[in-house]
Amino acid sequence: MVNHYRKIMVAVDGSKEAELAFRKALGIASRNGAGLLLVHVIDTRTFAIVEAYDQSVADRADQYAYELLEQYKTQASAYGLKDVNCIVEFGSPKLRIPKDIAKDHNIDLIVCGATGLNAVERFLIGSVSEHITRHAPCDVLIVRSEKEFS
């Protein structure tokens, strides 16, 4: 018996790698008749870097996230997907995606890009995609290339 994915989450952040992951997720969702959950987690750790943090920083990040997700949702609808939802969350992407969002939404496949932190950060804290792979309650697809699924 072949298992089919029913709920697919794709984590997007505006990067080229996230765009590639989104395109692959479209094909997988279409072939499986699955719902697609578009997720952007605003990393609150970056706010600590901004010395004069105020609410406007969070507001701008939130506005960017909603605009980004709406663009992806429009593309998914044009691709023919009917069940497309969006979520914007605040926190650590490497924690929120596998431990909270995937579980709360009964996701059975997470698709994300192999986005890179610099080598020092990767050594010290690990990449987001690596952390998702280790802690996800479901299958994870890390997209590394521009090859399209056929």
Rank of each mutant, 00 (worst) to 15 (best):
A136D: 09
K16F: 11
D83Q: 09
A29G: 06
R122G: 13
E89R: 10
D43S: 07
I107P: 05
R96A: 09
V140L: 04
S30C: 12
Y79S: 07
Y53A: 09
I28Y: 06
K99D: 15
V84R: 09
I28P: 05
S145A: 11
Q71H: 05
A21F: 03
D43M: 06
V120N: 10
L81H: 04
R45Y: 12
I110W: 01
V41G: 00
D139L: 02
Y72L: 00
A114W: 13
S129R: 15
A65C: 02
K24L: 03
V128Y: 09
L117M: 15
K82E: 15
T115A: 14
L38Y: 05
N118W: 10
N85P: 00
V41N: 02
G35H: 04
C138I: 05
D100N: 14
N118C: 03
K147F: 07
L81Y: 05
A58D: 08
K99Y: 13
Y66R: 07
Y64M: 06
E17K: 07
A65I: 00
D54R: 05
R122H: 13
E19S: 14
A78T: 08
E67Q: 11
T46P: 04
D139K: 05
R6L: 13
T133Y: 10
Y72I: 02
Y79Q: 04
H131S: 15
V84Y: 06
L37I: 07
Q71I: 00
R23K: 12
G91Q: 05
Q55A: 10
R23N: 11
A102S: 12
N118H: 13
C138Q: 05
F22Y: 10
L68T: 01
K147N: 10
E130G: 14
A65T: 01
E51R: 15
I97N: 00
T115V: 12
E17Q: 14
F123E: 14
L36C: 06
A119S: 14
K99F: 11
L20S: 10
G116H: 15
V12P: 03
Q71G: 02
G35M: 05
I28M: 06
V120H: 10
G113N: 08
F90L: 13
G14N: 01
